[in-house]
């Protein structure tokens, strides 16, 4: 009887454990099924590389390149902001902050990482955009630049926190060896600690990229929403996530537009999947390199 119960428990848990797999497959299947009609009716390469996104015209056009470019530009801009600031903050915490400063700042950064993205979007829309508009004398503050800035700041705590973890995994013995050889702290940091934590820091950056690519609310509210290829970083853009969020409500179910939005979701899914896989590979290598095991 006891044995029987043990087996039952084991089975219950193993069945429930499959939930994640089930949901992941469910998501992939849903994206494929819902976008399938779209792919049947429209040429795939023409859609992906098409320049014109006019989903409600007659006949509609579903060129996604503008949206993909917008996502790419905004993410790149966000990285320009959050890589130096995030990694710099991590190194500051590790190298310059006193123990008591670190005890306050480290959890603070983690808490800030939890600020909802809607707050960032709201703040970007109501404070940052008007400010930049006045400061730079541009026609609208809602553009790729502002979106990049806000998105970059939003991703900073995540990158800083993960990079700090990576740096703190570097054995103290490396640091001691370098100092004992007469290197100063900056040399020790840049030539020993950062290279040793390099792949860990890369993982942090890549996960930051993942967060920026997939972020919806900030770009929806701050990027300006124009579905055209930008000519300058001060042009309004419409990234993939913003497009889905803005148009899902008005797309007629089963229409080409509806399918196209799921198709964008599918592209988005594969982009983030690729990012995750790369991050996983790099972080595994990092652990091996420092002899941390898996």
């Amino acid at each position: 009887m006891r044995h029987f119960r043990e087996t039952i428990y084991k089975w219950i848990f193993s069945v429930l454990a499959f939930a994640s797999l089930l949901f992941l497959t469910g998501i992939i299947l849903t994206l494929f099924v819902e976008s399938y009609p779209f792919f049947v009716r429209h040429d795939i390469s023409e859609s992906i590389f098409g320049l014109y996104w006019y989903p409600t015209y007659d006949p509609p056009e579903f060129g996604m390149l503008t949206l993909i470019t917008a996502s790419f530009v905004v993410t790149l801009g966000a990285m320009v902001v959050c890589i130096p600031i995030g990694v710099g903050t991590a190194l500051f915490l590790q190298e310059l902050a006193s123990a008591s400063q670190r005890a306050v700042l480290k959890p603070l950064i983690e808490i800030l990482a939890g600020i909802p993205s809607i707050i960032f979007g709201f703040f970007g829309m109501i404070v940052v955009a008007p400010f930049l508009q006045r400061l730079l004398g541009i026609p609208t503050g809602l553009n790729a630049f502002t979106a990049s800035l806000v998105l970059g700041i939003m991703a900073t705590p995540t990158v800083a926190s993960l990079a700090e973890d990576a740096v703190s995994f570097v054995p103290r013995s490396f640091r001691e060896a370098s100092l004992a050889l007469g290197a100063n702290r900056w040399q020790t940091l840049t030539r020993v600690v950062v290279p040793a934590a390099g792949s860990g820091i890369s993982t942090a950056i890549i996960l930051g990229i993942g967060r920026a690519v997939g972020e919806t609310m900030v770009v929806l509210m701050v990027a300006g929403g124009a579905a055209v290829i930008p000519h300058s970083i001060f042009d309004p853009v419409r990234p993939m996530t913003a497009t889905i969020a803005a148009e899902m409500g008005e797309a007629v179910m089963g229409s080409g537009h509806y399918g196209a939005l799921f198709a964008i979701g599918l592209i988005l899914f594969f982009i983030t999947l690729a990012i995750n896989i790369v991050a996983e590979i790099i972080s595994r290598r990092f652990r091996l390199k420092l002899g941390l095991g898996r």
């Binding site: 013995s173 001691e176 060896a177 370098s178 004992a180 020993v192 290279p195 040793a196």
Partner: peptide, 11 residues
């Protein structure tokens, strides 16, 4: 100079 208890070559 100093040599430590555990060998600590850089990676």
């Amino acid at each position: 100079g100093m040599v430590f208890q555990k060998p600590n070559p850089f990676p």
